[in-house]
Nucleic acid binder design. Structure first.
Lengths: 338, 338
DNA sequence: GTCGTTGTCACAATCGATTGCGGTCGAGCA
DNA sequence: TGCTCGACCGCAATCGATTGTGACAACGAC
C-alpha cells in the first residue's frame, strides 16, 4: 500500500495537507505559490508519495478505472481488442479491469453491477446481444458505455466495430469474380449484430449480382468450430449443390472445412471458402484461409478513446457509430469455380 | 454508481448505520438481533443497496481486487491463464484487473505501483524475468504475489508453472525413440526461467541418452516466430547436420519451420520438430505440430487459488512451487530419422 | 431489592484525500 | 494613514462505510 500519506508530505514541506493536495493537483496548482509547489513536489518525490486512489475516488467519485467486458478471452478475436484498449487507457492514466463473462448473461449482469460498485468510470462492452436488457438499463443510467465489435438493436450507445457490410460484399464479389454462383452463407447467431448484419449484407450482395438468395443462408448457433461443423453437415445432408461458402467468421470456416474435408471435398479445388476476422495463424493453415481482415487492435483503441471522450465531457454526443475499414485478404482457400 | 447508501438502508430499517453495517456483514451479523437483521436485509434488497467498494476498501484496506500482470495478451499463451485466474477470482468475489506490460519492464514498474496505489490485494505476475529487481522489491513488501508460468532466480515467491523438465524430457525421449541422434534445441531467452530450465533439461536428457550436447543449443532472443526463423537461418548457415529440433515453444517452432520449408527441408520427412505449450490451432497446421501440452487454464486457476490462500491467511508458507503435469501430444511433425 | 451479566444497538472516530469558505498579510492606491 | 484587493494558505466538512466503546434495558442470581 502507498505507505506514505499526504499528511506526511505536507508535514515535510511544512504546509497544511490541503495545500499539499492543491500543489500536487495540476488543476488547482495555480492557487498555490510556485515556491510552495516546488517544496511540496520535492517532498513528495523524496518520500515516494503515491496517492491513495481509493480515498481520492471516494471523494471525487472518479476512479480512473474502466471495465472491459468480454465474452471469452480465449477466443483469439478478443485479445487484440483488449490490448488496443489497454494501451490507450493506460496511456491516459486509466486502469483496465477485465471481466470474462463466459458467454453467460447472468454472470455478466452480476459482474457489471459489481464493477459499478467499484466505481468504475465507464464500460467497454464486447458482449452485446441484439436484444440486451442490460444494455438498455446501462444506456438509461449515467455511466459511460461504449460497445465494441457487436452492437445492440436499440440501446443508444456509441459503437465501434468493423465494416461488416463491406467485408461481406468484398467476399461475395471475389467469389463471383471467380465464377462462383452457388454460394452459401454460414451466418453467425441471430442474437449478435455481426450475425444479423453479415447475413443481411450477404443477401444484398447476392441480389446485386442477380444470384438466388433463397435458403442459401444457414444460421449457426454460435461462433465456434463445432457450429461450423454442424452447419457443414447440414449442407451435405441437404444435397443442395454449392461451390463456395462465405463463413460468418474464421471459426465457422474452420469447422466447415474439417467436415467437408472428411467428406472428401478438397479446398480450393472442389469448393472455395472465406472467413472473417483473420485470427492469428489463419495464414499458417493449409491452404491458408482467405478472410476479411479486421483492425482489431484499432477497434479496441478507438473504443477506449471514445470512452475517454465521453468520460471527459459528459455532454458530448454519445451515439457515434464508428465503422473501421476492413480488407479482404485473398489466400489459398478461394479459387475458380469448377 | 451505487446510488443508495448505507444510511438510507439504515433509515428505512429504522436503525443506526452502524447496526445496518453489522447486519449486512456476515462476520459481525451475530452481534445483531436476528429480527433486526431481517429488517435490514429486506430494506437493503428493496432499495437495491450495493455497498460502495471504495469506501469499504478505504476503511478496511481490503479491496477484493487482484492484479494480473501479463507481457502480451495477444500471445495465445496467456488468454487461457487469464481465464483460469478470472474464474477462480470472480468466484471468490474478487475482481481482476489486467495489465499488459508490452514486455517493457519500465512500463511494468509503473503499472505495478499504480495498482498498489489502487489498493489491490495481490498480484499474479506472468512477466517474471530471471533477474528481476521489481520482484525482489515486491517479495520484501507485504503484498501477496504469485508468479505464474515464469519464475525468478531468487525472489522467494510462490510459483505455479508447467513441468518444463518433464516436457522436454518427453520430447527428447520421443525423438530418440524414433532414431534421432542429432537434435538441436531452440532455447528461449536466458532471462526467462522457462528458457533456462528447458535448456538445462534438454542437456540433461541428451546426456542421459549418451548424446553430444556441445553447441546443440541455440538461444533465441525472444519467444517469437521471428526469433525462431532467425535461429533456423543460423542453423542452416552453420552447415551443422541435424535431424530433429526441440523448440523452446510453439512460436519458435513455427518460425523455424517457415525458414526450413523455404530452404526445401520437408517436415517430417527431412527433419522432426517439437513445440511447447500447444497453442490453439497447432493441431490445424499441416503437418499438425507435435508439442507439449501445458494445462494453461489450470495454471491460472491454481495461481489464483494460491494468491487467495495467501490473502486469506497472511502467515501461511508463501513459497510453494507448484508444477502442473504436462503431456507430449504426438502429431505430424515428428517421425523416424532418415 | 440490588448488583452483575448479557444482548442490542447508538455514538463517534476513522480510513486518506479533496474542496468551499474564510482568514491573513502585504501591496497598491487615495 | 487607512482601506481595498488579491494572492496564498489553513480550517473543517465531506465522500461512505467499518468498528471500538459505551449506554441502556431485561433478566437472573444473591
Amino acid at each position: 500500500m502507498g505507505r506514505v500519506r499526504l499528511v506526511e508530505v505536507a508535514r515535510a514541506a511544512g504546509v497544511h495537507p490541503a495545500t499539499a493536495s492543491r500543489a500536487l493537483n495540476p488543476g488547482a496548482r495555480d492557487e498555490v505559490n510556485p515556491r510552495t509547489v516546488q517544496r511540496v513536489v520535492r517532498a513528495a518525490e523524496q518520500l515516494g508519495y503515491v496517492p491513495n486512489t481509493l480515498a481520492r475516488g471516494l471523494r471525487t467519485s472518479r476512479s480512473f478505472v474502466a471495465a472491459l467486458v468480454i465474452p471469452d478471452i480465449t477466443n483469439s478475436l478478443f485479445p487484440p481488442i483488449v490490448r488496443g484498449a489497454e494501451q490507450v487507457l493506460s496511456g491516459a492514466g486509466f486502469t483496465l479491469v477485465l471481466t470474462d463473462t463466459n458467454n453467460d448473461p447472468d454472470l455478466e449482469r452480476g459482474q457489471v453491477s459489481s464493477m459499478r460498485a467499484h466505481g468504475v468510470d465507464g464500460f467497454i462492452i464486447a458482449t452485446a446481444r441484439w436484444q440486451d436488457p442490460l444494455l438498455d438499463e446501462l444506456a438509461k443510467s449515467a455511466v459511460p458505455v461504449v460497445l465494441v465489435n457487436r452492437r445492440s438493436a436499440d440501446a443508444a450507445l456509441p459503437f465501434v466495430g468493423g465494416d461488416d457490410q463491406r467485408g461481406v460484399r468484398l467476399s461475395v464479389d471475389h467469389l463471383v469474380a471467380h465464377g462462383h454462383r452457388s454460394i452459401v452463407h454460414l451466418a453467425g447467431p441471430a442474437d449478435t449484430s455481426t450475425g444479423r448484419e453479415r447475413a443481411t449484407a450477404f443477401r444484398a450482395a447476392m441480389r446485386e449480382h442477380g444470384l438466388p438468395v433463397r435458403s442459401s443462408v444457414i444460421e449457426c448457433a454460435s461462433y465456434s468450430e463445432q457450429a461450423g461443423a454442424a452447419a457443414a453437415q447440414r449442407m451435405l445432408r441437404s444435397g443442395r449443390p454449392f461451390t463456395a461458402i462465405v463463413a460468418g467468421n474464421d471459426l465457422l470456416a474452420l469447422g466447415a472445412m474439417e467436415v467437408l474435408g472428411a467428406a472428401g471435398r478438397r479446398c480450393p479445388e472442389d469448393y472455395s471458402i472465406t472467413g472473417f476476422n483473420d485470427l492469428p495463424f489463419m495464414r499458417k493453415l493449409t491452404p491458408p484461409l482467405t478472410t476479411v481482415q479486421v483492425p482489431l487492435t484499432d477497434m479496441g483503441a478507438v473504443a477506449a478513446r471514445t470512452l475517454l471522450d465521453w468520460i471527459g465531457k459528459p455532454d458530448s454526443v454519445r451515439t457515434t457509430q464508428t465503422l473501421l475499414p476492413v480488407e479482404l485478404v485473398v489466400r489459398g482457400t478461394t479459387g475458380p469455380a469448377t
